[in-house]
Write a protein that binds this DNA or RNA. Structure first.
Length: 684
DNA sequence: GTAGGGTTAG
């Protein structure tokens, strides 16, 4: 026996009561839980059938005990090692796996390809590629499986360059190798490269096409998204008879959905014989994405009735839809359901809960969920930061950003979008600039187009146009539409006509069909009294057939959503609403409210031709909310566009007169009105 | 008897 082994044995014998344990307490416990199987264990040990006992313990997931039995065997067989390692793989038990590995070395066992492959698999599945690489390097013989396991291991954790290198070096490839490489690209947001590889395979090695490579290639086409490519694969699928697999059908369904061909996606879904939770989830999600809100929710309800259990993907998808539609009530139902089925607190569905609550303006609940997370992920941190920024508490947003840094989680580019927008909402221009520079200097991240748009927003709102232009002229990226729109918005606030011309010119090139640009520009001209220019813009708009988006607000009262369009008279309670608004108007004027006539014009852009400011959709919704709920109830209204200045002023007065907390989520942020002022400090 | 595909996302 080698010294090493003796040491090993001592370590294990330190808890040498194991024999007693097996025959007494722990066995008794197990006897109670599983009397039939467990009664055999003491017998096995007594008869020195340790290898069988190890099998038994492995099945019971009692890995540590199984490993302890190893040193009752002079020379464990390959089969025993194999069983043990396989059990460690199944349970992702890296520590135990390493113990078995050391045992093989200590007992001078020379693993063949088979056992080595199991070890590779162990380390690859546990993400410990350093160990896997070591085993791989030490192997005298490697077979296809060894190479494939390494490639899949690297691909899974996103080390795609290493995976690709092995793939290129390997002596021969089978369908597994191709798929490991292709799916690695797919799952790490590099669908183009995935497709390139797929095409390469089709050209040189087409016999390796199977259901696995096909579903990966379909997923890649969906991610791009490229319908033409997907359709080609669809055709190929049918020609080669590879269309018999349900997973391939799911991938196809998702492809059509992601490419916006909802009808085809639904057709596939309806035709599928065996729909599983993935196909359901995909179908539901694509409906929401396409704006088919009711269809999405009703499919979700159908799924719940179908007996198939929704999973974290399903929850995340539905919750995100609730966040987009501000359907807090439904979101709460989903939350309740998750509680009942007992959700995994580590799941990403929890971050969707944080997101849902913060998007619905319930930042307290978002925070509560966040606090319950054992290890909040970056998405949750970011959701909370963005939530605080949008809910009018930018300082809290920045506070949480500091906490994030302390927690050791690395912020990414999206986190900084939240941080910068917090600075924008708070009017913290210099602090925002500081953060902007820190992205690259402190955090080693590359500035994205979004970061530039944020910083231009920050500068333009506060009228620092020189600095803004300086950044635009020197930035390494091409300014995008969001950046120009931010600049144009700043020009509107400060009446900067020259820069407005530059910004709108750029916008007309990028998205000539967007009505907002025309309207904002017309308003800037109108404010400066440049009427002929206003007429020109309107003419251009007319000529190109561009239609304004109507303003729309909605409010949820007792589980029912009430929608108001501008000048809407279709609501059954409309005369009560008008009467109430008339009364309010008198009181508001006594308090000093002056209707902002200028903005009648401004809002022609967003609210069409209505002359009377009191027909704006958010005022209708707010008024309806007040008359439909008991005094003191907070009111929460949602609007599809940005709120107008007059409505903003009016709602401040209303909040004071009726003594209510009124929250308005517009397309940009939350406004929390209370006792005559708004959380946005009139900065939006 | 070892290795695998399709859903989510601030």
């Amino acid at each position: 026996m080698s010294t090493k082994f003796r040491h090993f044995r001592r370590t294990f014998s330190a808890s040498s009561q194991f024999r007693n344990e097996i025959s007494s307490s722990s066995t008794n416990n197990l006897l109670n839980s599983n009397p039939n199987k467990d009664s055999t264990l003491p017998g096995l040990c007594k008869g020195n059938k340790f290898e069988e006992a190890i099998d038994f313990l492995c099945q019971q997931k009692r890995l540590k005990e199984a490993i302890e039995l190893l040193h009752h065997i002079d020379q464990p067989s390959a089969r025993t090692y194999s069983t043990l390692i396989a059990a460690c793989v199944r349970n992702r038990a890296l520590e135990e796996g390493k113990m078995v590995h050391s045992h093989t070395k200590a007992s001078n066992f020379v693993p063949g390809v088979f056992i080595s492959n199991r070890l590779l698999d162990l380390y690859a599945k546990c993400g410990s590629l350093v160990d896997a690489q070591k085993v791989f390097d030490e192997m005298r013989n490697r077979d296809l499986c060894s190479w494939n396991t390494m490639i899949a291991g690297y691909a899974k954790i996103g080390r795609l360059e290493e995976a690709r290198k092995l793939f290129d070096e390997m002596p021969q490839r089978d369908n597994f190798s191709w798929n490991a490489a292709i799916s690695g690209y797919v799952s790490h947001d590099r669908p183009q490269e995935a497709l390139e590889l797929f095409r390469m395979m089709q050209r040189h090695d087409s016999s390796n096409s199977n259901k696995f490579t096909l579903s990966s290639a379909l997923a890649a086409s969906a991610a791009i998204p490229c319908l033409r490519n997907g359709k080609e694969i669809h055709g190929y699928m049918i020609r080669t008879g590879l269309d018999s697999d349900e997973v391939v059908w799911s991938a196809l369904l998702d492809l059509y959905g992601k490419c916006g061909s909802l009808v085809e996606a639904r057709g596939i879904f309806d035709k599928m014989v065996e729909r599983d939770v993935v196909s359901w989830t995909s179908m539901i999600h694509r409906c929401f994405e396409d704006g088919r809100r009711e269809e999405g929710f009703s499919l979700f309800r159908e799924l719940m009735r179908s007996g198939i259990s929704p999973n974290e993907y399903t929850f995340a998808g539905v919750l995100n839809a609730c966040a987009d539609y501000a359907a807090e009530h439904t979101g709460k139902e989903v939350h309740g359901y998750m509680m009942r089925v007992g959700y995994d607190p580590y799941s990403f569905a929890v971050s969707a809960l944080v997101h849902m609550y913060s998007k619905c303006g319930n930042i307290e609940n978002a925070r509560r969920i966040f606090n319950l997370m054992p290890r909040p992920d970056l998405v949750s941190w970011t959701s909370l930061i963005v939530g605080y920024a949008q809910n009018g508490e930018p300082n809290k947003a920045l506070h949480f950003f500091q906490l994030l840094l302390h927690s050791g989680t690395k912020p990414d580019q999206i986190t900084f979008v939240g941080v910068l927008s917090a600075c924008t909402h708070a009017g913290l221009v210099d602090k925002g600039l500081e953060y902007f520079h820190s992205i690259k200097e402190k955090h080693g991240l590359v500035h994205t187009a979004d970061h530039y748009a944020c910083v231009i927003d920050l500068l333009a709102r506060s009228g620092r146009f020189k600095e803004a232009e300086n950044i635009i002229d020197n930035m390494p990226l091409k300014p995008d539409k969001f950046l120009w729109a931010s600049l144009l918005g700043g020009c509107r606030i400060h009446g900067n006509i020259d820069l407005a011309k530059r910004a709108s010119k750029a916008l007309f090139e990028i998205e000539p069909e967007n009505p907002a640009t025309y309207i904002t520009l017309a308003n800037i001209y109108a404010n400066a009294g440049l009427w002929p220019e206003v007429a020109k813009v309107r003419k251009a708009m007319e000529n190109r057939g561009i239609v304004k988006k109507p303003g729309k607000s909605w409010i949820e009262i007792r589980k029912q959503v009430h929608v108001f369009l501008v000048g809407d008279t279709s609501h059954p309670k409309i005369s009560d609403i008008h009467e109430f608004l008339g009364e309010l108007s008198k009181k508001m004027k006594e308090e000093g409210y002056v209707p902002d006539i200028n903005f009648v014009l401004h809002d022609v852009e967003e609210e069409q031709k209505e002359q009377n400011l009191f027909y704006h959709s958010e005022k209708l919704a707010v008024a309806f909310g007040i008359i439909s709920t008991p005094p003191g109830t907070p009111i929460k209204v949602f609007k599809n566009l940005r709120t107008c200045v007059d409505c903003h002023t009016a709602i401040k007065y209303i909040s004071k007169i009726v003594q209510r907390k009124i929250t308005v989520r517009d397309s940009n942020r939350f406004h929390c009105f209370e006792d005559g002022s708004c959380s946005c400090n009139d900065f939006w």
